[in-house]
Amino acid sequence: MSVLIILLIVSICISGGFLVAFLWSVKDGQFDDDQSPAQRILFDQKTNKK
């Protein structure tokens, strides 16, 4: 059964990684504006003339 113990610890670590990723993205401001990114992705990127 000791394999279960290892698996438990591993699974907690993995999900902990996702939690950290989420907190990071919040801190980065990704959740501040939930409307503009949805629109932004639809704009065609014209070839840069510069």
Binding site: S15, G16, L23
Partner: peptide, 15 residues
């Protein structure tokens, strides 16, 4: 500045 603590709290609670 936006208050983000609620997001943190939800994230932690959900996890």
């Amino acid at each position: 500045k936006t208050d983000r603590t609620r997001w943190y709290k939800i994230g932690v609670a959900g996890f």
